[in-house]
Nucleic acid binder design. Structure first.
Lengths: 340, 340
DNA sequence: ATTAGCACTCTCACAAGTAGAGTGCTAAAG
DNA sequence: CTTTAGCACTCTACTTGTGAGAGTGCTAAT
């Protein structure tokens, strides 16, 4: 369904005013601040129509209007202007991507922090899933007399480490095991690597049983840990928003994030989406976040992909959020493709 | 200064009642719930005395009493009963320490989470500092055609990794560099390792300049990153407490934590302390956390030590907090000594 | 089709009044 | 001399009431 030109302009004005102030907006303000060339009364009529058709809501009988989920949806689909990042913001992002980062995980953590800071909402990154990340190599390094450090490297540069206990295994033997694994597992996707490793090493039972068992256990752990794939920023920014003055609401959001899988499911449920994707209010099916919005996009990392995005109130500066997410999509894709 | 027996009993009753309910406590309740064998009127007199001597406060002229910082202090020093962990809690902790953990950092993260969960406050761990952790070995592993993975292992099993760019360096050369470093740096404390590495590798200029530079830069980074030494749990638990219904307060605490160094400084400022240490309200000098309390203790890790503790409201269940912290001190010390 | 005017509605902020909890003091009892 | 009962007093939290302000919807005029 579409709207005639003036209705669209009124809707846009209401949404933008509300995003800015957070207060229900009345016809007077619209007439004064947004030069539509008509009187408050006319705007009132338009707003009444917009309310009938479900684009606006009224908190109570006689107060200004507030955009409904549908109103926001129409706004982001049809009315929203494209925003660009400020020079400062671009510079900050550039500098993150220029900085040499220790490892992929720290890098993603920093990215999340930066997304949070520039958006003033809550940034997050969902790392690539284990079905499409592949094994590159494994190394067993002597770490002390009775411990070895297992280092796993994936094709996109993710590194996982793990301390393994052992008894009477020489450095040469460690290296031999590493090489068997590395040679035979390269290119195998991470979700199948544990099984493969097990069948590869089964023969070596007696002597290396202890090591084998730990290696396999570790690889299983790496595969399963969906939980660790989601990196979320600090919720401080949300505390500044009037919609989260009510602690209960904030609690809902935080526990949704901490409850494993809620966000992950939402992010991966729908495949054919625009980029960045905007999901408004109840469009997020999960109960606890049905009154907040997400803007997120996909970056590719090798054969696979991850998501980066922003969680914020429905009254979010969508335009800016889109600008930020788009920028990060590109930069991250670049970062990971360079890494190969 | 000491208190006569009955005053002490009244103080104890007030503190415990207040810890439980969070409401100012009146003479009536004390007389009814705590069998002191005297009437409310007598208790009123005692409470008036306790107020005069600074152990109790009155929020306003005519309401129950609330413990002052001094009251809490006397309580924890003299009156507090020793609490033991419940069977469930002990079991949860045992099981964490029995689980094979990937690496030290993940392990500490899990520990923090568990401390938060069992205390229902906010757990944290401060890792060992770089002045007393020593270098064990370094490994440069081929990670792709133009990248190597640098793996650093310290004496207490901390592992840091970093991707390094390179051009035309063979695996053998990588190994040679690793061995030079490992052989010469073992036992050097981490705060001096970067300098040493630099002077060691200075000669190899032309060919390996690029690698050397990155290695040194990384080592410097590892040393400096005090920030990364503090692991803090999720603040959700705090949201459930009535004292944090006011969002401003919560914001203060969170930004204190995120502002680098505030907590660290406080934890390392005083040396000769009881274990666990309890720091109540204004005893934490930092402005932003002067109305919350900390209970923390020290665990040793090799030659050095770290801190583990709990952040909560002044109205904290100190007895339980102490039990939790003590348990973790022991377990962590055990964990790290076994690791050597 | 648009707008001015106006009655109406609803919230918010402030004031006043009340119930309840708790105190401090005094005087009597132990 | 210590303890306790009794009572007036104080302060908060809650309820009720009122007025201002913002905004609407409707009607009639342009």
């Amino acid at each position: 369904m579409t709207l005639d030109d003036r209705k669209a302009r009124v809707l846009r004005a209401v949404v933008e005013e509300y995003i800015e102030t957070g207060l229900p907006v009345g016809s007077r303000i619209i007439a004064k601040r947004y030069r539509l060339g008509v009187s408050p009364a006319t705007i009132r009529n338009e707003m009444a129509d917009l309310e009938d058709t479900g684009y606006l809501d009224k908190p109570h009988t006689s107060s200004g209007r507030v955009p409904s989920d549908r109103g926001y949806r129409f706004y982001v689909d049809e009315l929203m202007p494209a925003k660009r990042l400020t020079a400062d913001e671009s510079r900050a992002i550039e500098s993150l991507f220029r900085t040499k980062m220790r490892d992929v995980v720290s890098f993603l953590r920093e990215a999340v922090r930066l997304v949070s800071d520039t958006s003033n909402y809550l940034g997050f990154v969902l790392g690539p899933d284990s079905e499409s990340v592949t094994f590159r190599s494994i190394h067993l390094l002597p770490a002390s007399s009775d411990k070895a450090l297992l280092v796993l490297i994936t094709d996109i540069g993710f590194v996982e480490t793990c301390l393994i206990e052992m008894r009477d295994v020489s450095n040469e033997e460690l290296k031999a095991i590493s090489e068997i694994l590395s040679r035979n597992l390269t290119g195998v996707t991470m979700d199948r690597v544990a099984d493969r490793a097990y069948s590869l090493l089964r023969e070596e039972t007696s002597r290396y049983a202890m090591i084998v068992e730990q290696v396999v256990e570790f690889l299983q752990g790496v595969t399963m840990s969906d939980s660790e794939r989601l990196y979320v920023g600090s919720p401080v920014n949300l505390l500044n928003l009037p919609e989260f003055r009510d602690v209960e609401r904030l609690k809902g959001v935080i526990s949704a994030i901490e409850t494993n899988g809620i966000i992950q499911t939402l992010l991966t449920k729908y495949q054919d989406e625009t980029n960045p994707t905007i999901r408004i209010g109840a469009e997020n099916e999960a109960e606890s976040i049905r009154d907040i919005s997400m803007v997120y996009g996909t970056f590719s990392a090798g054969r696979t992909e991850g998501k980066i995005g922003i969680l914020g109130p429905k009254r979010m500066d969508y335009s800016k959020a889109v600008a930020i997410v788009s920028t990060f999509e590109d930069k991250l894709t670049g970062y990971f493709s360079k890494g190969r």
